[in-house]
Design a protein around this nucleic acid. Structure first.
Lengths: 347, 347
DNA sequence: GTCATGTACGAAAGCGCTTTCATGGCGCCA
DNA sequence: TGGCGCCATGAAAGCGCTTTCGTACATGAC
């Protein structure tokens, strides 16, 4: 396991009782702040607890008090994607609360971290369900989750044998690229993001499909405005004829926007820029983008989990009750691209 | 308690075993996907589970498997404040993960919801610690939390007897208002937000202190761009001489910005606008604002919790080890106000 | 000094599950 | 046909805590 350095087994109330020379009932009373304990005794117990670095076992406690067995689902989401974070987790949280399910949130930092978290969840039976956002998972683990009856759903990432909600990111990449070209672009460039995210890789794929593999591209290693700006600067300086930029995320696009302005070029006029997601505030910035329904991601995950948890037994019977879905995306034309087709939504 | 309608006590594996005519060990094996069960038996057990709507008790399970006793802290944060949400919970989550503490997130919808959640946490010993964001709590409950040894910290909201991290929102309100006046404003208006948030009320208070109680004001009932826009429209139409707007949140200010433009007035020129928080992307929008260090809010909460949990025993001894702090705020002048004092930060 | 009253505390019985260990039935080889 | 081993299964022992119940002792009234 991946536990703290010194695996000294936690002391129990028996250890405390022995050390303090009292019975376990008394230790328990001290633990729960009961009045009916002599001061001297209480102090002795507290000293013992301190010396042994005692910390009560929550599971045992709950078992004993008979606390309600409220289900708990773990949401694993990548740390890098700020845009996702709020838009998705707010409705997720709201939906789960409505279904009386607790949400344990894990901001996954990297692949190794993800594996650790999953291992723990399995080993400790820490949660009744798992929502995976925008990431890959080793199949064996998923299988194991299924075997011990922990339902899993994926969002923004397909996983065999698991209900998933996704959008067609390849198509989204195509649409964005075509839009730029229809708007008159002759030389389009790509700013892409960390390869961990399948969505980014797929948007990239759609882009290349339309614009050709030799189109200039730059990869931002983080999804930040600064990284987007830097990538755009590189691209712009290296390829002066560039007249359009597709960025695989709005945040990167905002950085690109700044870079373009810094180079005294006019966004939407002599150079087009498009992003992805349509995250909050992007509209007021005026960035054209491909919208994906991020709040629906969260809401769907909450609904699906509630369903799966409710009929946990059918799940055991291999009768999945939640279907995978592919949500439509939408081109949103604002001021950083030229609107050519009358069909595109103008905002 | 606040449990599901029909409080039929959950069936246990004994009930299942009896119904299926097997021993509890077999039920357990089925539950854990063990191979060593005859198909017929497995099916019988599954049927019984289904019929009785069995769902395993997590606490018992964890007790039995001896899962590690990783501490768990609950974060209660209000639903309305999108700006807060990401900026604060990302570093909180990161900090807690680093300390190997699980984060259970509750998006609090209203006062009643908050009370319910707190009651449950106390009754079920669901968490080892609690972080309260931007909200009020009945004192008795806080006291009770202390008695059973659950540490509490507050962020963006002071609470007697609890370490808290706050900013001086009254002073922030004063600073913003003075800045507008120094920039030449003769007639300043206020757009404030839901009264649940103490921070809003305090910024309002600072505003009134400087500008006088009879200054025009409008209250947005939600913290959304649209609500801010509407409030600004009302104000602008009702008071044509208004030449500055203080909005208690950036989001409201963005709405106000749109309203101002819609009325063909020039932000930063014939009408100044200032917001609060300096949330992500606000800089690229160019809004002047009072920055509060939101990521420090989350980081502090994580650090404090880790400390408090580590020395849970001193806590019992009433030796608090975490001190309350008041963080400095900062005026950030951008394009929607006039920069008069050379001291203000220009971005 | 006796008896009622109270108070501090320990023994022990669970809470619902996992897991080890023992058992009985069965197929298989000699 | 006897003996062997294997497999499915049940009995029972915990996991660490809370809580009831009863005991021992101290206190007060008479």
């Amino acid at each position: 396991m991946y536990e703290s350095a010194f695996m000294a087994p936690n002391p129990t109330i028996y250890d405390i009782a022995k050390r303090a020379g009292v019975g376990i009932a008394t230790v328990s009373r001290v633990l729960n702040g009961s009045e009916r304990v002599a001061d001297a005794t209480r102090e002795a117990v507290q000293r013992a607890m301190q010396e042994l670095d005692f910390r009560p076992n929550r599971a045992a406690r709950r078992l004993a008090v008979g606390g309600v067995n409220r289900p708990r689902v773990a949401a694993l989401m990548p740390f890098f994607s700020a845009s996702f974070y709020y838009a998705v987790s707010a409705p997720l949280s709201a939906g789960l609360i409505a279904a009386d399910i607790d949400l344990v949130l894990y901001n996954i930092q990297d692949r190794e971290h993800k594996n650790r978290v999953l291992d723990r969840i399995v080993a400790e039976r820490a949660c009744e369900g798992i929502v995976l956002f925008s990431m890959g998972v080793r199949d064996e683990r998923i299988a194991e989750l299924g075997r011990i009856g922990i339902p899993v759903v994926c969002v923004d990432y397909p996983q065999i044998g698991v209900p998933a909600l996704t959008v067609d990111n390849i198509e989204a990449g195509r649409i964005a690229t075509r839009h730029l070209i229809k708007g008159g672009a002759r030389h389009v460039g790509l700013i892409t993001g960390p390869t961990v995210a399948l969505a980014f890789r797929q948007r990239e794929e759609g882009f290349i499909e339309i614009s050709g593999a030799k189109s200039p591209q730059e990869r931002a290693e983080t999804v930040t405005i600064e990284a987007g700006r830097q990538a755009a600067i590189n691209l712009l300086d290296q390829f002066p004829t560039l007249d359009a930029l597709m960025c695989v995320s709005d945040i990167l696009a905002v950085g690109a926007l700044q870079a373009v302005r810094a180079r005294n070029r006019i966004p939407g006029d002599d150079i087009q820029i498009i992003g992805f997601d349509d995250q909050p505030l992007i509209d007021v910035i005026g960035l054209s983008t491909i919208r994906q329904p991020m709040d629906e991601f969260g809401a769907w995950a909450a609904r699906s989990m509630a369903t799966l948890l409710k009929r946990g037994k059918e799940q055991i019977n291999n009768t999945p009750t939640v279907e995978s879905q592919v949500l439509p995306i939408e081109l949103v034309v604002r001021s950083t691209t030229r609107d050519t087709s009358g069909s595109a939504k103008k905002r």
